[in-house]
């Protein structure tokens, strides 16, 4: 990974909720990088901080109470040194959002403005960032709708969000995100609100688009199946930390961290033997800020030991995935 320059390099990112002694760390030293033209998936359960990571990169954190307290978010624009988004000013961020980095949200209905036609909403981004005239922007919007597989785009561009079905709305949202051909696309659970057959269509669309534009995708999801289908690399998060990362095939087939193992063992799949009993992780995710030292997973880990009270080292396995766990070191 070192040879190639990363498009996005998140280093030791820290985000806290609240101020002073009552501040609770929601992201606690998160590091990962997204390579050009690749898809990195962040996977984890509620409260692990995956959406917070996406919002930090976009600098859309609800401030207050959330605040970036440390780390760097290096974004390579291809000209000169990488830009640190963690400390970039509002103007820089505004110019970046929608142009270099675009975001696709979970709820297509709330991501669209109900009072403007779809075409205008796509065109608006182009008028803002590319300086296109309204007429040119609208023509380009029709092209984009065609690209994302919306049938009869000329008519559809004049329609309002409520006239679109759920799947078509998400396609429109993707069209807006693609308008300026951003280098990085952040997708936060983009198919969770969709029906399964429509989810399959949207996932395929995103895959096609990535190949066509060679863009990078940061894909946030809770669904291991989606990870397997979409991602090249995966980051597993638990309680504000990265517990494991690596190539998708390695992490899914040979998870090294007990949390990743537990996560995979608790998901029913279509090809598992019918008589196999799921092995859920015991207990539940503790509140943010309740465990601030050592391995955060130790309260639920079946292999927890005394040493787990100390921060675990990050160890890379022969398969190529690296996990932060005392046990992994022993086995290699």
């Amino acid at each position: 990974m070192a040879a190639e320059r990363a498009l996005l390099d998140v280093q030791d990112l820290r985000v806290s909720f609240g101020e002073g002694p009552r501040a609770r760390p929601a992201l606690d030293g998160v590091s990962f990088s997204v390579r050009p033209g690749k898809t990195l998936a962040i996977v984890g359960e509620s409260g692990c901080g995956k959406s917070l990571t996406a919002l930090s990169i976009m600098r859309l954190l609800p401030t207050p109470p959330a605040r970036i307290t440390g780390g760097r978010i290096l974004f390579d624009r291809g000209d000169g040194p990488a830009l640190d988004l963690a400390s970039a000013d509002r103007r820089t961020m505004r110019r970046l959002r929608g142009k270099d980095i675009a975001m696709i949200f979970q709820e297509p209905m709330t991501a669209l403005d109900p009072v403007y036609p779809i075409g205008d909403q796509i065109g608006e981004v182009l008028v803002e960032h590319e300086g296109l005239s309204r007429k040119d922007a609208l023509a380009r919007a029709v092209e984009l709708l065609r690209l994302v597989g919306v049938p009869s785009p000329e008519e559809r561009a004049r329609q309002y969000p409520h006239e679109f079905s759920g799947g078509m709305r998400q396609r429109a949202v993707i069209a807006i995100a693609l308008a300026c051909e951003p280098a990085l696309l952040i997708a936060d659970e983009p198919t969770t609100a969709l029906d399964v057959t429509v989810q399959a269509q949207v996932l395929r669309l995103m895959r096609d688009i990535q190949q066509r534009f060679a863009s990078s995708i940061l894909f946030i999801t809770h669904d291991m199946g989606v990870v397997g289908q979409m991602a090249d690399e995966v980051v597993v998060m638990y309680l504000g930390q990265v517990v494991e990362e690596g190539p998708v095939s390695a992490v899914l087939s040979r998870p090294a961290h007990p949390y990743s193992q537990g996560l995979i063992a608790s998901i029913p799949t279509l090809d598992m033997p019918r008589d196999r009993v799921l092995q859920p992780i015991s207990g539940m995710v503790p509140p943010i800020g309740s465990i601030t030292t050592g391995c955060r997973f130790r309260t639920r880990c079946p292999h927890a030991m005394e040493i787990c009270r100390r921060d675990p080292p990050k160890v890379t396995t022969p398969a190529g995935n690296s996990a932060s766990c005392w046990l992994v070191e022993e086995s290699t």
Binding site: S165, G166, G167, M168, D195, V196, T197, V198, Q199, A200, Q201, L203, R204, R207, D223, G225, V226, G228, Q229, M230, V248, S249, L252, T269, L270
Partner: peptide, 21 residues
């Protein structure tokens, strides 16, 4: 068959059904 095809997974190469409910 379309529902089974749509379940996301590593293969991901299965046929995708057109249209929406």
């Amino acid at each position: 068959e379309a529902l089974i095809d749509s379940v996301p997974g590593a293969e991901g190469a299965r046929a995708v059904v057109q249209g929406e409910p």
